[in-house]
Design a binder for these strands. Structure first.
Lengths: 140, 140
DNA sequence: TATTGTTATACTCTATAACTATA
DNA sequence: TATAGTTATAGAGTATAACAATA
């Protein structure tokens, strides 16, 4: 395969491309949800809240430290989109969507689905191939 | 294609996978250059300096604000890896590698080439396919 | 007047450690 | 003693705006 940058190895070039594609994906997501009036990280959190989740579980989904989720939950509560409810183990707080939160979550899902994004550069078969290759990369 | 998370669209799932793969690529790069004793962003900058570049040009390669490059150049100079030299247009400062910088750059190239990384999960034909798909995504 | 690089400043994102309340 | 969540703090990475030198 031709190298576009003289002496950066193919290896490094593939990595750069993956990182660039991720930046594209992030920008695209931010763009898709902009009209909803939520910062991207809150919109993304809503996507995971199709069912109530413990704070720690949200942290795992977002791949961040649990302490970070406190602020996100505060923010969602302040916007009336989610509430903390105690679990049966009373150390645990479950983050659940309010009816308004459910509605906004549906908006986010629709926006992501509708938005003309980078995935539209690929046809169905190419998306399938990409998903397969990325699955290989992401395997342990 | 089966959706692994109930009601996140395929679209969103592909995006998440690309972002996850990029995180993997970044961690892998950091891992590869760790033994060289350079923070990843400096090692990455070295890769672009196979020829002298104006500060602004470096900023474009790194996709960051030019003001940010000042600190990077300071850091590289403090480590004896690069020097600023005036261009023919004397507003421009060219960042060039010192002999030591050339040597360390070769180390970085070798480390990235050798390091068992996420690209090794793919065979040659799969890498080619991935590069092609990413090229499509990254087209304007 | 426009452009290059610099400085000073501030913002975003995230992690760490110490704390509380449960278990 | 161990775990869930919180608080306070700090660090990395990056952007913005005002500035000096040059075109």
């Amino acid at each position: 395969m031709a190298r576009t940058t003289a002496d950066i190895a193919q290896h490094a070039r593939l990595s750069e491309m993956v990182v660039a594609a991720a930046d594209r994906a992030r920008a695209n997501f931010a763009d898709a949800v902009k009209h909803i009036g939520l910062p991207p990280h809150l919109a993304r959190t809503l996507l995971f809240l199709h069912e109530p989740r413990a704070m720690r579980s949200v942290a795992n989904e977002l791949v961040c430290d649990p302490s970070h989720v406190t602020g996100i939950a505060d923010d969602l509560e302040a916007r009336g989109l989610a509430t903390r409810t105690p679990g049966t183990d009373r150390r645990i707080k479950l983050l659940s969507l309010t009816p308004k939160g459910e509605a906004v979550r549906r908006q986010v899902v629709a926006a992501v689905d509708d938005h003309t994004g980078f995935v539209d550069m690929l046809d169905e078969s190419q998306r399938k191939t990409l998903a397969e290759l990325l699955t290989l990369i992401l395997e342990d």
